[in-house]
Design a binder for these strands. Structure first.
Length: 410
DNA sequence: GCGGATCAC
DNA sequence: TATGGTGATCCGC
């Protein structure tokens, strides 16, 4: 929970670490996390070993192809578009505060003792953070006020937000309820405004319409715009000029972890090769090309150069639809199979609503020690609850004896 | 194609 | 006392 999220700058990180350690020591969840950490370390060791064993000839080959590839990517660099990424400030918490103004001045989190989905900036000062279990948050901030999630409330404000965003880009796409990517290139030529002016007006329109604040990033690519929207959060904006020099200079000291798609594990692997910033990444593309897998290499090259994501991706069709539920650990097959029946009903209803059929049914289970397993079965295409439930239960029974479970999903 | 793993929000 | 739910992607086999 020590990260670079907005509003977490002045947090006493040692205190957070101590509290988390005290509350998790010896727990099953912690053991599972440690197991994954050990796997990452093992993977890093293999990568280092592999790198050390490369012949001089092979290294020269890689260097040549990397040089060539960078040249091609530079030749195709596209600085013609202006993207704005707009991101609401502590969206869920802010929605509740509009309805209950007294929450503005107290530390508040949306969620419960198990999990927090977001916290207001008062709570963040104490180290409370999204994805933190509520019982840890209370220990960090005993005065913390919990508010239950209310998706209808968020939907109401999200609909108002989309009204605003549409004005700037008819085809805007939403990352989630509270954020969107807008290609404002045409809006700018139509109005004569520059990127910063458009972002300022957009944020002002959002606040006028909803009384909610947001932050915005302006940049020549979607990926960079997303990073920029976080730069002056909350209630701020940042403009990255549309020039190669500006992009390269912006990236030079940017921690790789700020880039969407770089999580804890990839950050750890890069760090093992002394790569912590995008500038260092740019200087290390030979290593990257030597030790990572193809998709990751493609991704990291475009991150390092600040290229890619200039175009809006075509809207993808759905590839999966599922439901899962956590409960107090049990091995009672009657309880577990009843859960699966209920989840299968929910899935079937949504499939029917969207005029879809299931081709493959996946059973997901999480054991009481937090180990996750998935088993799948291809069925004759169907959106009938009965077919889906029977497939899930068949898969479950094949895993007997499965012991105590804490979650099942369909 | 399957199952584990990672990531975003 | 107590660590979520949904969807996507990648990789090794």
């Amino acid at each position: 929970f020590i990260n670079h999220k907005a509003g977490m700058a002045g947090v006493d990180q040692e205190r957070v670490k101590a509290v988390v350690k005290e509350l998790t020591r010896g727990g099953q969840h912690h053991r599972e996390e440690s197991r994954k950490d050990a796997n990452t370390e093992e993977s890093i060791a293999k990568m280092k070993e592999m790198y050390a064993s490369l012949s001089a000839t092979r290294i020269r080959e890689i260097e040549g192809s990397v040089r060539c590839r960078i040249g091609e990517m530079e030749a195709q660099r596209d600085l013609s578009r202006t993207w704005i990424h707009v991101d609401m400030d502590a969206f869920f918490a802010a929605c509740h505060t509009l309805e209950r103004p007294e929450l503005a001045s107290v530390p508040m989190a949306v969620g419960g003792m198990s999990m927090i989905s977001t916290a207001n900036y008062v709570a963040r000062k104490a180290g409370v953070r999204s994805a933190m279990p509520g019982f840890v948050a209370v220990k960090l901030c005993p005065a913390l006020v919990f508010v239950r999630q209310d998706f209808e409330l968020y939907q109401k404000y999200a609909a108002m937000l989309r009204e605003v965003w549409r004005v700037y880009d008819k085809e805007f796409d939403c990352g989630s309820l509270d954020e969107a990517y807008l290609d404002v290139t045409e809006f700018m030529s139509r109005t004569g405004m520059d990127g910063g002016e458009v972002a300022a007006k957009l944020r002002s329109d959002v606040e006028t319409k909803t009384r909610l604040t947001c932050s915005a990033g302006v940049a020549p690519t979607r990926r960079l715009a997303k990073i920029c929207s976080d730069w002056n959060k909350p209630n701020g904006q940042f403009v990255l000029e549309r020039s190669r020099e500006a992009v390269i200079s912006f990236l030079s000291d940017l921690p790789v972890r700020k880039v969407g798609g770089v999580g804890k594990v990839l950050e750890g692997k890069l760090s093992a090769f002394q790569i912590r910033t995008c500038g260092q990444l740019r200087q290390s593309l030979n290593v990257i090309a030597a030790v990572f897998t193809p998709a990751t290499i493609d991704f990291l090259f475009s991150v390092a150069l600040g290229t890619g994501t200039e175009q809006r991706p075509p809207d993808a069709q759905r590839k999966g639809l599922g439901h899962e539920r956590t409960f107090a650990p049990t091995s009672d097959p009657r309880f577990i199979e009843a859960k699966l029946h209920g989840l299968a009903e929910d899935v079937a209803k949504e499939l029917q609503k969207e005029n879809l059929k299931a081709q493959t049914v996946t059973l997901k289970i999480k054991k009481s020690n937090f180990e996750v397993m998935q088993r799948q079965l291809t069925v004759p295409s169907s959106n009938a609850a009965k077919v889906i439930a029977e497939a899930a239960i068949l898969l479950l029974r094949k895993e007997r004896p499965y012991g105590a479970l804490r979650l099942v999903g369909v």
